[in-house]
Nucleic acid binder design. Structure first.
Length: 506
RNA sequence: GAGCCACUAGCUCAGUCGGUAGAGCACAAGACUUUUAAUCUUGGUGUCCGGGGUUCGAUUCCCCGGUGGCUCACCA
C-alpha cells in the first residue's frame, strides 16, 4: 500500500475517533514535530519562581527576569500583543506578550497555543496599569501540547459524573475543588501533628487479612493464589492495633483506608479513610477529651477558627462538647424512660407505639430492650444532635469489643460523637477480658448463623493476645472523610475523595 | 437493592405540542500593542446516551438497557 493511502486510512481513523477540535490540536502538534519542536521531547524546565513567589515578593522582583511555568488558561490577543493567564499550583499569573519583545514569528506561535497547553516562560516581572502583577514575556517554550479542549471557562465542569471520573479536569478548572483537597491534606497533617506531639506512634497494619474484624460490616473478599486462601480487605484496624497495645506500644494510631462492601451514597464510599488510636491506661472519658481537643486543634490549625458553616448551619467545634447518655437522649427526644422499662415484652410494646418497627434489623418478636433503645435513639434523637455531642453508654449487645459499665453491666463504656445528626467518631473503654471477649465473639457467631452476615468474625489470635494481657485501654475511631466534609462544607463524601468509587463505563 | 429525575456541540445550557436542532464559551479566518468573562466582523460544530416499538416520519411518544443525581434501605 502506498504511503499516501496509508495516511488517508490514518486520517479516516482520526475522523472517527476525534472531533474537529482535537484533530486541529493534533495537526498543530504534527507541524511542531516537523519543525523539530516536539514538546514531548522536552524532559524538564528550570523555573525560578512560582506564581505565589512572584506575587509575594513583587518589590524585590520588579523588573527582574524570572522563569515560570504553568497551564495556559486564557488568552486575550490584541493584534501585535496579548494577555494570557497561566495557572500553577498556587494559582494564576498573567503574562503580557508583545511583538516588540518576542518578534513576529514567536508571537504567531503564541497565538497558536491552545488553552490547556503547558508552557515555560522567561520574562520580566512588572505591574500593568491596572496594577496586576504580571510577566512581560521575552521567550517561552511549549512544554506539553494539550490535545483535548478544557471545559468552559466561566461555568467550569459541572456534570458530577465527569467531575468524579475525570477529577484531573475538575481540579484544573474548579478552584474550590483544589481548595477542598488541599484542606484535606492539611487536616490529616494536623491530626498527625496533634498525636505525634502527644507521643503516639503511627503504625501500619494489614489491609489484606484472613479475618475481617473490628466492626460490623460486609467485607470485600479476594483470593491469594500462592497460599490458595480467600482473604478479606480490612473493615477496621481495631484488632491489630490492640495487639500492639498488648505488645507494649501504649499509644498507637493508624490512618488508612477501610473497605466495606456496602451501598454508595452521599455519606458512604466503599473505601474510606479512618483513624483509629489506642491509649493504654485510659478509658472512654479520656477518649472524649482527646476527641474534642483533637478536632478543636485541627479546626484552629486549618481554618483558624472552631466555627464552621455546614450547609447553612453554624457548628462550633470548640471543646468541651455536650455529653448525653443514650438513655437520656431517648428520654429527651422520644419521651421514653428506659429505666422504668422492666421487660423485653414491655419494650416491644413501646416500639409498636413509637412506630420504630421498620427501623429494627430483626423481627420485632426477636428484639430485646437494647435493640429498641437503639432504634428509638436513631429515629428520634440522632437528628437533633447538630452541635458536636457525645452520646454515651451503648447497650452491650451492639458493642462486642467494649467493656461493660462496672455498675450497670447491660451497658458499655462506649460513646459516639455526633455532628449535624451524623456519627463522626466511635470510642470505647476497650474490653480486655479474654474470657468475656471470647463469649462475645461466640454470641456474634450465633448471630451470623441466624443470617446476620455483618456479625463479627471469631479471631482466635486476638483472644490469644488478650490472654497474654492487654492493659486497660481507651480506643477511638474517627471517620476522616466525614470530618473533612464538615470542615470543607462538602455535601457529598465524593467531594472529599479524589477518586470516588464509580461504576466503570462500558 | 427500590422509587423519582436527568442525559442535546469539547463545556454550560436552550429547544423541537412528532417533520434530523440552537445560544454562549471554546475553535477557525480577519481587525485590534495594557486586557482580565477583552472587544468587533465572519464561519463550521452534533450517533440529540444505546437498543427496540408505534408512526409515512422519533432527539421528541412508549418499552428495555446504560451512566449519573436525589430520596429511601444497608452502613461509618
Amino acid at each position: 500500500m502506498a504511503n499516501e493511502e496509508l495516511n488517508q486510512v490514518e486520517l479516516n481513523q482520526l475522523e472517527e475517533e476525534y472531533n474537529e477540535l482535537i484533530r486541529q490540536r493534533i495537526q498543530k502538534l504534527e507541524e511542531l514535530k516537523e519543525k523539530g519542536q516536539d514538546p514531548f521531547e522536552i524532559v524538564k524546565y528550570d523555573r525560578t519562581h512560582t506564581s505565589k513567589q512572584i506575587k509575594d515578593n513583587y518589590e524585590e522582583l520588579e523588573n527582574k527576569t524570572v522563569k515560570v511555568a504553568g497551564r495556559l488558561m486564557s488568552k486575550r490577543i490584541h493584534g501585535k500583543a496579548g494577555f494570557s493567564d497561566i495557572h500553577d499550583r498556587y494559582g494564576k499569573l498573567q503574562l503580557y506578550v508583545k511583538i516588540d519583545n518576542v518578534g513576529e514569528e514567536k508571537l504567531k506561535f503564541f497565538k497558536s497555543l491552545d488553552l490547556g497547553d503547558i508552557i515555560g516562560v522567561e520574562g520580566e516581572v512588572f505591574k500593568t496599569k491596572t496594577g496586576e502583577i504580571s510577566v512581560l514575556v521575552k521567550d517561552f517554550t511549549l512544554l506539553t501540547k494539550s490535545l483535548r479542549p478544557l471545559p468552559e471557562k466561566w461555568h467550569g465542569l459541572k456534570d458530577p459524573d465527569l467531575r468524579y471520573r475525570q477529577r484531573y479536569v475538575d481540579l484544573i478548572v474548579n478552584e474550590n475543588v483544589r481548595d477542598t483537597f488541599i484542606k484535606r491534606t492539611q487536616i490529616i497533617k494536623a491530626i498527625r501533628k496533634f498525636l505525634d506531639d502527644r507521643d503516639y506512634i503511627e503504625v501500619e497494619t494489614p489491609i489484606l487479612s484472613p479475618i475481617a474484624g473490628g466492626a460490623a460490616a460486609r467485607p470485600f473478599i479476594t483470593h491469594h493464589n500462592a497460599l490458595d486462601i480467600d482473604m478479606f480487605l480490612r473493615i477496621a484496624t481495631e484488632l491489630y492495633l490492640k495487639r500492639l497495645i498488648v505488645g507494649g506500644f501504649e499509644r498507637v494510631y493508624e490512618i488508612g483506608k477501610n473497605f466495606r462492601n456496602e451501598g454508595i451514597d452521599v455519606r458512604h464510599n466503599p473505601e474510606f479513610t479512618a483513624i483509629e488510636l489506642y491509649q493504654a491506661y485510659a478509658d472512654y472519658n479520656d477518649m472524649m477529651e482527646l476527641t474534642e481537643q483533637l478536632v478543636e486543634f485541627v479546626c484552629k490549625e486549618v481554618l483558624g477558627t472552631t466555627k464552621v458553616t455546614y450547609q447553612g448551619t453554624e457548628i462550633d467545634f470548640k471543646a468541651p462538647w455536650d455529653r448525653i447518655t443514650m438513655k437520656e437522649a431517648v428520654k429527651k427526644y422520644a419521651g421514653i424512660d428506659f429505666d422504668s422499662i422492666q421487660s423485653d415484652e414491655e419494650a416491644r410494646e413501646i416500639a409498636k407505639k413509637m412506630k420504630v418497627e421498620d427501623e429494627l434489623k430483626k423481627e420485632l418478636k426477636d428484639c430485646n430492650k437494647a435493640d429498641i433503645l437503639v432504634a428509638l435513639f436513631e429515629t428520634y434523637a440522632e437528628k437533633h444532635l447538630i452541635q458536636p455531642t457525645f452520646v454515651l453508654d451503648y447497650p452491650v449487645e451492639v458493642s462486642p469489643l467494649t467493656k461493660k459499665k462496672p455498675n450497670d453491666p447491660a451497658f458499655t463504656e462506649r460513646f459516639e460523637a455526633y455532628v449535624f445528626g451524623r456519627e463522626i467518631a466511635n470510642a470505647y473503654s476497650e474490653l480486655n477480658d479474654p474470657i468475656d471477649q471470647k463469649e462475645r465473639f461466640l454470641q456474634q457467631l450465633r448471630e451470623r448463623e441466624l443470617g446476620d452476615d455483618e456479625a463479627y468474625m471469631m479471631d482466635d489470635d486476638f483472644i490469644n493476645a488478650l490472654e497474654i494481657g492487654m492493659p486497660p485501654t481507651g480506643g477511638l475511631g474517627i471517620g476522616i472523610d466525614r470530618l473533612i466534609m464538615f470542615l470543607t462544607d462538602s455535601y457529598s463524601i465524593r467531594d472529599v475523595i479524589l477518586f470516588p468509587t464509580m461504576k466503570p463505563t462500558k
